[in-house]
Simulated scan of single mutants.
Amino acid sequence: MFILCALRSARFGISRVFATQPTQFLHCSGARLIAADKELLIKLRKKTGYTFTNCKKALEKFDSDFQQAEAWLHQQAHKEGWSKASKLQGRKTKEGLIGLLHDGNSAVLVEVNCETDFVARNIKFRELVQLAGIATMEHCRAKQTNLTDYVKSSFVAEEVKKLKTSLDGRTLADQLALAIGNLGENMAIRRAAWVAVPSDWYIGAYVHGELPVDNPSLTKMTFGKYGGFVIYRALEQNAKEQLSDLGRRLGQHIVGMMPLSVGSVDDPPGDDSETKLLAQPFLLDPGTTVGQLLQTNGVSVLDFVRYECGEVIEAGENV
């Protein structure tokens, strides 16, 4: 049924009668349309992480075509990110996170910096750290075949940024620009280290100041301000659970006591003995040296890596 509406102009004495659609139909249709648009907007916002304003603008620009809107948002963020990256380049990045990715017989440590601790705790920033860790791991996987000894690689900033991500094929430099455009702070991918060991060796890993995992997308990685891993092997038969627990405690010691080298149990006491891992009093039992702890447990430590977010790296130092 249509409703007849009469409009009369008092000034000109003209009357017009026209038909309109039922008011109930108009109300229901409009409500469904608004609900659908809102649902699409929320979906786009959740998937891309960009602001509601930009997501709304993208959907309006492409008549609610989700794929075109998403592609345009990434394109704009990429363009604006590079622009912001160049403008913010001189600003100091003393905050950030260490990311640890431990997968079976291989592990990666990465450091990504930003300007404030507030941004360091942002999910988008942690996703960038995770992308850097995964890209490093995937790049190094080819070196893991038929290992008879451990393999360790270190990467400086420019090397890490050239790595491509499996997410969309972009380089980490591109992903960095996107994050800068999205979060509005200067950021820097500083370094990465990767290690792989034979199947009967072990990697002990530890992160201090660990952030809670509050998003399912971040479960692959552990984040904190300090991180380290230690490479070790058993000299005699030990339970794997015992060895795994020992590896975590060794990692905790390395993060806390900051050794510079492994050293040897035969090293004579001297001024530099406190910087050698085996000569240091064990963090969790100061009455025992690390070397004595390892002998008691029938374990040999081969190498380790320690990262501290924002630490000063001496020229020529292995990062």
Rank of each mutant, 00 (worst) to 15 (best):
F2K: 15
I3L: 09
L4A: 07
R11F: 10
I14E: 03
S15C: 13
A19Q: 09
T23F: 13
T23C: 10
S29G: 12
A31I: 12
R32H: 13
I34S: 15
L40N: 14
L41W: 04
L44R: 02
R45A: 02
R45G: 03
T48F: 02
G49Q: 02
G49C: 01
T51D: 01
T51P: 09
F52H: 08
N54W: 00
K57S: 14
K57T: 08
L59K: 03
L59N: 05
E60F: 14
F62N: 12
D63E: 04
D65R: 01
E70I: 04
S83N: 13
K84G: 06
S86I: 12
S86E: 15
L88F: 12
T93E: 06
G96C: 01
I98N: 08
G99D: 10
L100W: 03
L101D: 06
H102K: 14
H102G: 04
H102A: 13
G104S: 12
G104T: 02
G104I: 03
S106E: 12
V108F: 10
V108C: 13
E111L: 03
V112K: 05
C114Y: 02
E115G: 06
E115S: 08
T116G: 02
L128R: 02
A132V: 07
G133C: 04
M137H: 08
C140S: 14
A142W: 07
K143Y: 15
Y150L: 03
K152R: 12
S154M: 09
S154P: 02
S154H: 10
K162R: 14
K164A: 05
D168R: 01
T171W: 05
D174Q: 13
D174I: 01
I180D: 04
G184H: 11
E185M: 09
E185H: 08
M187T: 06
I189V: 13
R190D: 06
A192G: 08
A193I: 04
P198M: 02
S199R: 11
W201F: 11
Y202D: 01
Y206S: 11
H208M: 04
V213H: 11
V213F: 07
V213Q: 13
P216L: 01
T219Q: 13
T219A: 15
M221S: 03
F223C: 05
Y226Q: 15
F229W: 05
I231F: 10
A234R: 11
E236Y: 02
E236H: 11
A239N: 11
E241V: 04
Q242A: 10
D245T: 14
G247N: 05
R249P: 00
G251A: 02
I254K: 00
M257A: 11
M258V: 10
M258N: 14
P259V: 01
S264V: 07
D267K: 07
G270H: 09
G270N: 09
D271A: 11
D272M: 06
S273T: 11
E274W: 05
L278W: 01
Q280K: 05
F282S: 01
L284V: 07
P286I: 05
G287Y: 06
T289I: 01
V290T: 08
L294A: 00
V299Y: 03
V299L: 00
V301H: 00
V305M: 11
C309T: 12
G310S: 07
E311F: 10
V312W: 10
N318P: 00
V319Y: 05
V319S: 09
